[in-house]
Simulated assay, not measured.
Amino acid sequence: MSEAAATIPDTPLFDRAGSIRGYRINKMAMALGQPANRAAFKADEEAYLDGFGLSAHEKSAVMGRDWHEMVRLGGNLFFILKISAVDPTPITRIGAAQASMEHEDFLHLRLGKKRNG
């Protein structure tokens, strides 16, 4: 682990090693920019992921929409957002997952939104 990664607890560092580690996830996510690929992803997500050679752990993270784990596995957040657009998943939910917070708490504490109720 680099010195920079050690100074920011629980924050995955996207460096060269992370980029190499996340190549399959990032390549798969970038391909979702094409309408045919989005349709294939929606039709049979597991088969689509298999087509990019994702490991069982990577597939589990994507299929479970475990945003934090996808980033930890080397996923670049800008590419991972393409997955969220297929569902669609609000970016604030991804932010909450990255901060290990409940969505409602994230909206209130990080964005200053009023609580419901």
Score class of each variant (00 low, 15 high):
I80H: 05
G53P: 01
D66C: 06
D87M: 03
S19M: 14
R24Q: 03
L73R: 02
D10R: 12
M63S: 11
I91W: 02
S60A: 15
I94H: 06
H57L: 12
P90L: 10
I20V: 10
A56S: 12
L77H: 09
G53L: 02
A97W: 03
E104Y: 05
D87F: 07
I94Y: 09
L81F: 13
A4Y: 01
R93F: 13
A17D: 10
K82T: 15
L81P: 01
R72S: 15
R24S: 06
L109Q: 15
A29Y: 01
M1Y: 13
K82M: 14
N26S: 03
G74E: 04
R21G: 06
A96Y: 02
M63D: 11
L109V: 10
D10N: 15
A29N: 07
A43F: 08
V71P: 03
L107Y: 06
S60Q: 15
G22W: 01
M63W: 08
T11W: 09
I8L: 13
A17R: 14
F78K: 09
A99Q: 08
I20A: 15
K59M: 00
F78V: 06
E69V: 04
A85T: 11
E58Q: 14
E69D: 05
F14P: 00
S19E: 15
L109A: 12
N116P: 00
R115G: 04
R93W: 12
E69S: 10
S84H: 13
E69A: 09
S19C: 12
F78N: 09
P35S: 12
W67A: 07
I25A: 01
L107A: 06
T89R: 01
K113M: 11
I91L: 08
W67R: 08
F41V: 03
I83T: 00
L109C: 07
K59F: 07
S60E: 15
M101Y: 01
D87N: 01
Q98R: 04
S19I: 01
G75T: 12
Y23N: 11
E102N: 13
R115K: 14
L54M: 09
T7P: 00
D44Y: 03
M70E: 05
G95A: 10
R21Y: 10
A99E: 01
K27V: 11
N76G: 05
M30N: 08
V71D: 13
A47I: 00
A31Q: 11
A5N: 02
A96T: 03
K114R: 15
D15R: 09
S19G: 14
A43Y: 07
S100D: 14
S100W: 13
R16M: 09
G117K: 12
A40F: 05
Y48S: 00
K113G: 00
A85P: 00
E45R: 15
P35H: 11
R72P: 02
A47S: 15
K59C: 00
S2L: 13
F52S: 04
G53E: 05
N76S: 08
I20P: 04
I8S: 11
